[in-house]
């Protein structure tokens, strides 16, 4: 597993990019921004040591939904790719349940949205 170091203000990944990895914050802080670098830029979250960023890109293979930027010098991230998952979780098993819980939340939400649209389609056909 690679370790990457970032300076304050350095972009870790950009909204829209496709990247099959996630990052575990070893040191420092990471800001998550929507529309980074535009007048509509908005800080939506600040993450620090022990938190994971970019898990959807790795696990669900979706493009990055936001931009991640290092908020201080000496921000160190551990890069985790698919082939590292087993070793990563053996090292940090409590993160496994956390990630699974995030996944189950997302599944529940998207299922709810799907059920909603299906109902609308059914009701439109059977009006």
């Amino acid at each position: 597993m690679n370790s990457k170091e970032f300076k304050s203000g350095q972009v870790i990944f950009k909204q829209g990019d496709s990247e099959l990895c996630m990052y575990d914050i070893q040191k420092g802080r990471v800001g998550i921004y929507s529309e980074y670098g535009t007048p509509a830029e908005k800080l939506i979250a600040e993450l620090s040591i022990g938190e994971v960023v970019g898990d959807r890109g790795l696990l669900e293979r979706t493009p990055r939904s936001a931009t991640a930027v290092a908020l201080e010098d000496d921000t160190i991230l551990m890069e985790i790719r698919e082939e590292n998952l087993k070793d990563y979780f053996l090292k940090e098993p409590e993160k496994l349940l956390l990630l699974m819980r995030n996944l189950s939340d997302r599944l529940r939400k998207i299922n709810g949205k799907l059920a909603d649209v299906c109902r609308k389609i059914y009701e439109a056909e059977n009006a």
Binding site: E60, R61, L99, L103
Partner: peptide, 12 residues
């Protein structure tokens, strides 16, 4: 974990 990911992807 992979199955859960696949379910999220497919449902999306």
């Amino acid at each position: 974990l992979q199955q859960m990911c696949d379910r999220v992807t497919k449902t999306t």
